[in-house]
Computed example of a mutant assay.
Amino acid sequence: MPDSEQHIIADLRDENKRDLAFHVLVKTYQERLYWHIRKIVMNHDDADDILQNTFMKVWRSIDKFREESSLYTWLYRIATNESITFLNSKKKKSLMALGEENEYLVDNLMSDPYFDGDEIQLKLQEAILKLPEKQRLVFNMKYFDEMKYDDMAQILDTSVGALKASYHHATKKIEEFLKNTD
C-alpha cells in the first residue's frame, strides 16, 4: 500500500485529524470514482448521488477497513457495489424485465446532456451497454481505467482467470456489435 494511502488511513482513524483526512481522501479519489460510477449508471445525477453515498459509507466504515487490500481497491469495491445496488433498486421499482436494464442505460446515455462524445464514442458506449453486467464492469475497468487484473479481482471478488475470460468475451461482443452497425 502506498505511503500516501497509509497516511490517509492513519489520519482517518485519528479523531483530531479525521475531518481533514476525509477531505483529502475525497479530493484524491472523487474524480476517478465518479467516472467509474458514471460508466456503470450512465447518468450524471445518479453518479453524483452514488458517489456521495459511497463516501458516506467510507466515512461510516473506515474503522472496519482491515487493510487487506489497498485503499484504492476498497473504495472502488464500495463504489461498484453502491452502483449495482442502485441499478438493482431501479429495476425493482420500475419492474424492469430481464434485458431491459441495458435499454434503460442506453436511454440514459442518449438523453444525457453531459455526454459530449462523437458518433464513434456513442456507438462504443452503446456496444458496452449491451454487455452483461459483469462483462461491462470488467471491460470498463480494464479498458478505460487501465486497472490491473489483480486489483479488479479484489474489487469484484473473483479470479484473474475469470476476469480475463470476461474481458475477452466483452471485446469480441463489442467488435461484433460495431461490425454489424456500420
Rank of each mutant, 00 (worst) to 15 (best):
P2H: 10
H7I: 04
I8H: 00
I8G: 00
D11M: 10
N16H: 12
K17C: 08
F22I: 00
H23R: 11
V24A: 06
V26Y: 15
Y29K: 00
Y34K: 02
I37S: 07
R38E: 03
K39T: 00
M42T: 06
N43G: 09
N43S: 10
N43K: 12
D45A: 06
D46F: 10
D48H: 14
L51W: 09
Q52E: 07
T54A: 05
K57A: 13
V58I: 10
K64R: 11
K64A: 07
K64Q: 07
E67Y: 15
E68V: 06
S70D: 06
T73Y: 08
S83Q: 04
F86N: 03
L87R: 06
L87E: 02
S89R: 12
S89V: 07
K91M: 11
K92E: 13
S94W: 07
L98G: 11
L98H: 11
G99P: 04
E101M: 15
E103N: 15
L109G: 09
S111P: 07
P113E: 09
F115L: 08
D116R: 14
G117A: 04
L124Q: 08
A127C: 06
I128H: 01
K130C: 10
K134Q: 06
K134A: 06
V138T: 14
N140W: 14
M141D: 02
M141K: 06
F144V: 03
F144C: 02
E146T: 08
K148R: 11
D151E: 09
S159W: 00
V160D: 03
G161I: 07
L163A: 05
L163H: 01
Y167G: 07
Y167K: 11
A170Y: 00
A170V: 14
K172R: 10
K172V: 15
D182M: 11
